[in-house]
Nucleic acid binder design. Structure first.
Lengths: 109, 109
DNA sequence: ATTATTTATCGTAATATTGCGATAATGGGA
DNA sequence: TCCCATTATCGCAATATTACGATAAATAAT
């Protein structure tokens, strides 16, 4: 127990859930918004921008990266992070498919 | 430690994260899809549909309800669940605002 | 070479989540 | 009234997440 029963669901359901989970944290939402706002990428600026420790920010970046939503490029001594366009749009599409599959019919409870 | 530092973020970030978290689980995605597919609401059918125990389904329903994404109406001895249209559309809008705030500029890393 | 800067990783503590059996609570029908 | 069906809640065990200090690893500058 304690573990999600992955085998009970489709691949699509598990993947969508994993990507949504990556976004479903206020720190990671803030990081994404900051990356978008700064357009070109930042790195340790996130540490001063949000009120979190460096280790914590690094860990959140790792999670976003692990589902492919951001990418990091080494740039001298620092690392430049930014949104990964393909995964970003792909997730947007999948999320909207879910939302749009609901048609309000007022035949409900 | 172990707790999210809620005070470090805006209300909007915390709310969006909470609603996304409710969706970010394969069982809850499956429940939402089933509710949408059945249009009018079901209840304990979810238990036989997914391979989870009744207590588990009930708990997932509670979480979806707690962020307002579904509603339940008592109907005799059973309870009829369905999507709550306002919250559903509101979340879709907020999610798309986040996604659309990113403009690809290939000035990135 | 040494030092400073930047980021990743390790280890740990606190808390949250997931899943389920057991049990309560509610209302319908015999 | 007594059972049956349905759903919620409690309590628990296993695991996951969150946050951070300490430390390592890598590169730039002196």
């Amino acid at each position: 127990m304690g573990t999600t029963k992955v085998e009970a669901y489709t691949e699509a359901q598990n993947l969508l859930a994993a990507q949504l989970k990556a976004i479903a944290h206020p720190a990671r939402i803030a990081i994404l918004q900051e990356l978008i706002k700064a357009n070109a990428c930042i790195c340790g600026d996130l540490v001063s921008e949000l009120g979190l420790a460096q280790a914590t920010i690094s860990q959140h970046l790792k999670e976003l990266k692990s589902v492919g939503l951001i990418q990091g490029t080494i740039e001298g001594t620092s690392i430049c992070y930014c949104i990964e366009p393909k995964a970003w749009h792909s997730l947007q599409k999948k999320v909207n498919e879910l939302f749009n599959s609901y048609k309000e019919l007022n035949t409900c409870c």
